Simulated scan of single mutants.
Amino acid sequence: MLSLQHVTKMIDAQPLVSDVSFDVEKGQCFGLIGPNGAGKSTLMKLISGVYDTTGGQVRLDGQPIKRWSHKKRAQRVSVLTQDGLSPYPISVLNAVMMGRYPHLKFFQRESDDDMKRVQDVLAITGLSNMQDQMLDTLSGGERQRVAIAKAMVQEPDLLLLDEPTSYLDIGYQTEVLNLVQDWQKRTGLTVLMVLHDLNLAAQYCDRLILMDKGEVVKEGTSDDILTTETLATVYQTTPEIVRHPTKNIPQILL
């Protein structure tokens, strides 16, 4: 579904991303991990079409992403950043309804079907009783849940998450990622997410891509990537690796 072919991004002759290639199949959840400055967020901007590549191509269903119109791209790809939705003085209902805009024609009003989709998503995300509240009265974790509901209403094929759990406590972290995981299982959604928390990455991602200095160091399962030797080389620290007591996946202790 998503294919990166020798993608490079240069700014002022400095490489931010260098010769990155990988494929994500429909329905997979890929995690981008790596230290600060590894090029993860830059890569997400290249995938979403916010940045133009200096070299190589990002393809969605075989077509270069830049050939898709903004409207068509918004119908297929949804992006959620660590900041979520800004605390504007609009209601939760109206914020979530914004996810339907890519599917509406110019000056077209929302239909009864659009409203039903929004109400269904509000119920799924546990926001029905908050739909009349204003965004600027919600906590950061609650706004992030609204942002996911807005993305769900958008009905994309590909969801890009750039550090969606930053600044959230562990309760909201698992709530946000469980919502995404349930959505993925229910619809076959394809997910690519940047995560700094390696334990969450191991628990929620099918495959991981470890980046450093703009390059892909290694791609594979959490067992392939989360080894003492690999992490010590990239993160310049030596972690202890233990097995999760119920999921039997690697977890990191410092």
Rank of each mutant, 00 (worst) to 15 (best):
K66D: 15
D83F: 13
R100I: 01
G84A: 05
D197Q: 14
P164S: 11
V50S: 12
Q75V: 06
L208T: 04
V121T: 12
P64G: 09
D132E: 14
P89I: 13
V50T: 12
D162F: 11
V216A: 02
V77Y: 00
M115D: 12
V176W: 04
K26I: 05
S3Y: 01
V217A: 05
Q57V: 15
D169F: 09
A201T: 05
L104A: 15
P15D: 12
L161D: 05
I11F: 07
Q5F: 02
Q154S: 06
L253D: 04
S41I: 05
Y88F: 09
L127A: 05
E175C: 05
L189Y: 09
Q82S: 15
R109I: 09
G84V: 05
D197C: 12
V194K: 05
A38C: 15
M211W: 06
R67V: 01
V191E: 10
D12M: 10
V180E: 08
M193L: 13
Q63A: 15
R186K: 15
D212E: 14
K66H: 10
Q75L: 01
N199H: 02
R117A: 11
D61Y: 04
M134K: 11
I11K: 03
I241D: 07
K150E: 04
V191K: 11
D12C: 12
T190D: 13
T246W: 00
G84Y: 00
V24K: 01
L253Y: 07
T233D: 15
V153K: 07
L177N: 04
R143W: 07
P15G: 11
P102A: 03
R186D: 14
V234M: 09
L135G: 10
H196F: 10
L104E: 07
V234P: 02
